[in-house]
Amino acid sequence: MKKLSIIIPAFNEEKTIHLILNKIKETVLPKNITKEIIIVDDCSTDKTAQIIETFCNDNPELTVIFLKHTKNSGKGKALQTGIKKATGNYTVIQDADLEYNPKEYKILLKPILDGYADVVYGSRFMGGNPHRVLFFWHTIGNKFLTFLSNLFTNLNLTDMETCYKLFDTKLLQSIHLKENRFGFEPEVTAKIARIKQIRIYEVGISYYGRTYEEGKKINWKDGFYAIYCILKYGMLRLK
């Protein structure tokens, strides 16, 4: 029996955290794969933590690890905390909102289970799955960041900034991650690209994006910081 560790960083997600946890609970994985849910509350100031605790108490049959930060430190730091605790054979990143559908874990797992991949990215820009129509400049920004990342990593990804990244857990835990906030995506991409004989695949996924009124947090400042991280970790690769 193999295990999938699902890491959920959460900060002030009281409107959606119970919904995504129930979706994960209901998601059926491939045969002989079990779930380990690791939730890291990044010092939320709303009812996120209480809702998570209620979910844990109501679902004792599930393997749930609930961790709390005493200081708000950012998504990247929450992921670092969760990654250290992962005991599954594979690890997937899951945002606490409803932009990504846990039912698609099967799509992400397939290249790894078939023996082709060590890392799988879920691309919002390929395949025929549903995509909510939202912000033109966000799309341009994401594609530019992916292009810039590819320039330094020599990968041909279509969506470096995607949340849905699935890793061989031992591989992920062997990487020393430093970025505490939204620099996680370019940092982890640059660092896995440096690993010899790494097998990276992309699969098309759906995307149910949300507006800022609905709780979206990332903004233009995070985009500029992502450029900084791409250059920072890309330059290290070229040395």
Results as ranks from 00 to 15, higher is better:
3 K>P: 09
3 K>T: 15
7 I>Q: 03
8 I>C: 03
12 N>A: 08
16 T>W: 04
19 L>P: 04
20 I>W: 10
20 I>Q: 10
20 I>F: 10
24 I>F: 11
24 I>M: 12
26 E>W: 11
37 I>D: 01
38 I>L: 05
38 I>Q: 00
39 I>L: 06
41 D>N: 14
42 D>L: 03
43 C>P: 03
45 T>D: 03
46 D>F: 00
52 I>A: 07
54 T>M: 04
62 L>C: 10
64 V>A: 02
65 I>G: 01
66 F>L: 07
69 H>A: 10
77 K>Y: 14
78 A>H: 09
79 L>A: 11
80 Q>E: 10
81 T>A: 06
82 G>T: 05
84 K>M: 06
85 K>R: 11
86 A>G: 08
89 N>S: 11
90 Y>W: 14
95 D>W: 03
98 L>P: 11
100 Y>C: 04
100 Y>V: 15
101 N>W: 02
101 N>P: 01
103 K>Y: 11
106 K>D: 12
107 I>E: 06
108 L>D: 09
108 L>M: 15
113 L>V: 00
119 V>M: 08
125 F>N: 10
126 M>I: 15
127 G>H: 11
128 G>T: 15
128 G>E: 13
129 N>C: 01
132 R>Q: 14
133 V>S: 02
133 V>Q: 03
134 L>Y: 15
134 L>P: 09
138 H>Q: 12
138 H>I: 12
152 F>I: 14
155 L>K: 12
157 L>H: 12
163 C>N: 05
164 Y>K: 08
166 L>G: 12
169 T>L: 05
170 K>I: 07
171 L>P: 09
173 Q>I: 12
173 Q>R: 13
174 S>G: 10
176 H>K: 13
181 R>Y: 03
182 F>N: 06
185 E>Y: 08
186 P>G: 08
187 E>M: 01
192 I>Y: 13
192 I>H: 11
194 R>I: 06
195 I>V: 14
195 I>G: 08
198 I>Q: 05
200 I>W: 07
201 Y>T: 08
203 V>D: 01
211 T>W: 02
215 G>W: 07
218 I>V: 15
219 N>E: 08
223 G>E: 00
223 G>C: 02
223 G>I: 02
224 F>S: 02
225 Y>I: 01
225 Y>S: 02
226 A>L: 02
231 L>G: 04
232 K>G: 04
233 Y>P: 04
